[in-house]
Design a protein around this nucleic acid. Structure first.
Length: 110
DNA sequence: GCGGTGACGGTCG
DNA sequence: CCGACCGCCACCG
């Protein structure tokens, strides 16, 4: 599921769990991502908690922020991401503006 | 097998 | 809008 998150978008642990068919599996998603090896191709950094913040510690949250900013995700002054703005919507439910923005980014920007 | 723990989250105050 | 409180469930000692 995490691999399906488009560049420039973020999903929450709970969202990934539900999309994977697990109703209350947010913590398990975190556990699974925690078990990833260093050279993984899974875009783990696109997963944030429900508050739009990184759940990592010991400075690893900075790495996550860097990777996200690298693909255009903007962090607010409080260090959190607006899910309204960057949250991934598999069903494409969004404002016209968000839709056009997504179209341009998903289409190969980098 | 048991209890503590966590890259979480919905509810309440 | 925050913090505190549970509920959740796979791991681990």
């Amino acid at each position: 599921m995490v691999r399906r998150i488009p560049r420039g978008k973020v999903a929450t642990y709970g969202q990934v769990a539900r999309l994977a068919g697990v109703a209350n599996g947010a913590r398990q998603v975190g556990y699974a991502l925690h078990a990833l090896r260093e050279g993984t191709t899974v875009p783990w950094f696109r997963v944030l908690n429900a508050q739009g913040a990184s759940s990592l510690r010991d400075g690893h949250d900075v790495t996550q922020r860097l990777l996200l900013e690298r693909e255009g995700v903007r962090f607010r002054a409080d260090g959190r991401v607006s899910l309204d703005l960057h949250g991934w919507r598999p069903r494409g439910r969004a404002t016209p503006r968000a839709a056009s923005r997504r179209a341009s980014k998903d289409c190969g920007a980098s």
